[in-house]
Simulated scan of single mutants.
Amino acid sequence: MKRGSSIGLFGRFGRSEDLKRLDEALRRCDVHPMTLKEAVKLAAVSLMKDEEGGGEPPPFAYPPAAELLAYCVMGPDPFAHANGEAALARVEGRVERALEEDGTLDTKLILLAITSGVIQPSVVERFGLEAG
């Protein structure tokens, strides 16, 4: 039986495992999960599930998604400071590829960051991003 994502309720029902994994992956990228709207995280996990054909994403799928979201939320300089130049080059390469390849998970995560208003203006400017 497929279980949906859950943010918990009044401390009585716990967060779903998928959101816990995304939160932990965000922490590893130096983004406190509370700084990202729950709706954005739920949408990100939903996109990841769509990528898996509706099933649960494997544990190794969370760090790359979190890394891309962290870059969008932090911007290039803070991201590089927290995660290193190699991570910056890797994630910026992913953004460039996402702009060339329509419909990828990375493309969808970037669009999510744009439409939800969590993307840094420096990222928008750097890549000339726009929704639509």
Score class of each variant (00 low, 15 high):
23 D>A: 02
43 A>Y: 11
93 G>H: 08
87 A>M: 01
125 E>L: 10
121 P>K: 14
112 L>H: 07
20 K>T: 04
71 Y>Q: 06
118 V>F: 02
110 I>V: 15
43 A>E: 15
115 T>I: 09
45 V>A: 04
12 R>I: 01
17 E>C: 08
14 G>Q: 01
103 G>Y: 10
1 M>L: 13
26 L>P: 01
58 P>K: 14
67 E>I: 01
114 I>Y: 10
7 I>L: 10
123 V>F: 02
81 H>N: 10
48 M>P: 05
44 A>D: 09
67 E>V: 02
7 I>C: 07
32 H>G: 11
15 R>W: 01
1 M>G: 15
42 L>K: 12
88 L>M: 13
97 R>Q: 10
118 V>L: 03
1 M>S: 13
38 E>K: 08
1 M>F: 11
61 A>I: 11
6 S>D: 14
87 A>L: 01
125 E>P: 01
119 I>E: 03
84 G>R: 00
53 G>D: 02
117 G>R: 08
56 E>C: 02
107 T>K: 11
93 G>Y: 05
83 N>M: 06
96 E>F: 00
37 K>R: 14
128 G>I: 06
83 N>D: 00
17 E>W: 10
123 V>K: 00
31 V>N: 03
60 F>M: 06
58 P>Q: 14
17 E>K: 14
103 G>F: 12
104 T>Q: 02
13 F>C: 08
115 T>E: 15
28 R>G: 11
81 H>E: 15
100 E>V: 09
49 K>M: 07
125 E>M: 08
55 G>T: 00
80 A>P: 13
55 G>K: 04
92 E>K: 09
124 V>P: 06
39 A>D: 14
9 L>C: 12
81 H>Y: 12
79 F>H: 07
111 L>Y: 13
84 G>P: 02
119 I>Y: 04
117 G>S: 08
131 A>N: 09
38 E>C: 05
95 V>N: 00
91 V>I: 06
84 G>K: 06
26 L>Q: 03
87 A>R: 01
13 F>H: 12
79 F>R: 04
56 E>S: 10
123 V>I: 05
22 L>G: 01
111 L>I: 11
54 G>T: 09
63 P>W: 03
1 M>T: 12
25 A>N: 00
78 P>E: 08
30 D>I: 06
107 T>E: 15
112 L>P: 07
36 L>C: 01
35 T>K: 11
94 R>Y: 08
52 E>S: 14
32 H>Y: 11
64 P>I: 09
15 R>M: 05
124 V>D: 07
99 L>I: 13
105 L>E: 03
51 E>C: 13
44 A>P: 08
101 E>H: 11
105 L>I: 13
13 F>K: 15
16 S>M: 03
19 L>K: 04
27 R>M: 06
90 R>V: 03
123 V>N: 02
9 L>V: 14
51 E>S: 15
62 Y>I: 02
103 G>A: 12
2 K>C: 08
19 L>Y: 01
81 H>I: 14
57 P>Y: 05
9 L>M: 14
50 D>E: 15
53 G>M: 05
121 P>F: 06
66 A>N: 02
78 P>L: 11
61 A>D: 11
36 L>K: 01
